[in-house]
Amino acid sequence: MSAQKQDQAFGDKPEEVRDTDHYLEEYNEGFVDKWDDLIDWDSRSASEGDFFIQLLKERGCKTVLDAACGTGFHSVRLIEAGFDVVSADGSPEMLAKAFENGRKRGHVLRTAHADWRWLNRDINGRYDAVICLGNSFTHLFNERDRRKTLAEFYSALKHDGVLILDQRNYDAILDHGYSSKHTYYYCGDNISVYPEHVDQGLARFRYGFPDDSVYHLNMFPLRKDYVRRLMTEVGFQKIETFGDFKETYRESEPDFFIHLAEKQYHEDNE
């Protein structure tokens, strides 16, 4: 692979790059081409099962906005499960790959290039559910960006809609150091994923592939309770958090947390 494809333009001090918009540099053509090797669609389907499909069906959802569609994994799964899906992403490279992956599987994805902070400018309609998966929300380094994004997600939902948003278990990484079973999310073979640097304002992850290519992502290490608080302050009332697809868990065990936030207004909530 050429050096150009591996160059993510972090500069001489990559640990100082703490900018929401830098993800556009990080998800370059080379890294996007490797992304499906990283998640391994078949292994991911087996480990995840029907978790998201069941959550959505139990709540009567039919229309879904996949706000961080990446290479299309969840969009395709939801389409095949009978949902009406719009696939959005801020990365043009990811959207192109998602559309290509959809075509390979016999689907024409309805794609939309959208910055979450102005989501409702770039997408139409209201949805039964908005999903933001793949640890994508942690690309937002600025609290104002996070609040604006959650407000946009809230606005994109119908009155009784739900938001499903996931994140790495940064609490465990910050408090106890990094360990991962890679059982559920990044299931590709012979791929190395670990944080090269972690502090209260940055988790810089290194992704190494069998052909010796290396890529990085700079992300903000969001704590679980902080995300839940932001959701509440934006207007979501009932929030349920799963650990690696389980309702009960020890706080340090899950690799990922999955938040399910309901927009529906409960008058008796204090």
Rank of each mutant, 00 (worst) to 15 (best):
R110Y: 04
P221V: 03
I53K: 11
F257K: 02
T241Q: 03
D84W: 03
G60F: 05
R228Q: 13
F257P: 00
A98F: 05
L222P: 00
N124A: 15
F141V: 00
E15H: 09
D12R: 09
R204H: 04
H216Y: 15
V198W: 06
C61E: 13
I53L: 11
F10S: 04
S87R: 06
A151C: 03
A98C: 08
E240A: 04
F242G: 00
N124P: 00
H22R: 03
E262I: 01
H107C: 06
W116K: 08
N28R: 04
Q167F: 01
Y170H: 14
I53R: 11
K181A: 14
S45A: 13
D171Y: 01
P92I: 08
V227T: 11
E196Q: 10
H159C: 10
A203Q: 08
K5G: 04
D40L: 04
I191A: 11
L217D: 07
S43K: 15
D199K: 05
A172D: 02
S192E: 15
W35Y: 15
G70R: 05
Q167A: 15
R144W: 08
H22S: 10
P195L: 12
F83G: 04
R146Y: 02
K238N: 09
Y226A: 10
T138D: 13
Y178P: 01
R77C: 07
D166N: 09
S47W: 04
C132H: 10
A112R: 15
E29H: 01
K5A: 14
I258T: 13
I131E: 13
L95N: 02
F256C: 12
G188L: 09
V227M: 12
W41I: 07
F99R: 12
L202F: 05
D37Q: 13
I39Q: 10
F83R: 05
L133C: 05
A3C: 03
R144G: 06
G60M: 12
N218K: 06
K148W: 00
Y185D: 09
R229D: 12
N142K: 09
N218S: 14
T111P: 01
L150W: 02
F141S: 08
E270F: 14
Y265L: 14
L109N: 06
G11M: 09
L157A: 06
H216N: 06
A46H: 09
L56W: 05
H259T: 02
H107D: 07
K104F: 02
F99H: 14
F236V: 03
V193N: 07
E240V: 07
R229W: 11
Y178F: 15
A3D: 13
R126M: 11
C187R: 15
D40M: 05
D40V: 02
E152N: 06
L38P: 00
G30E: 11
I239K: 02
L119D: 11
F256H: 12
I39F: 11
D37M: 09
H266T: 04
D225K: 10
F52N: 02
N101L: 08
N169L: 08
Y23T: 02
H259W: 01
L163F: 00
F31K: 01
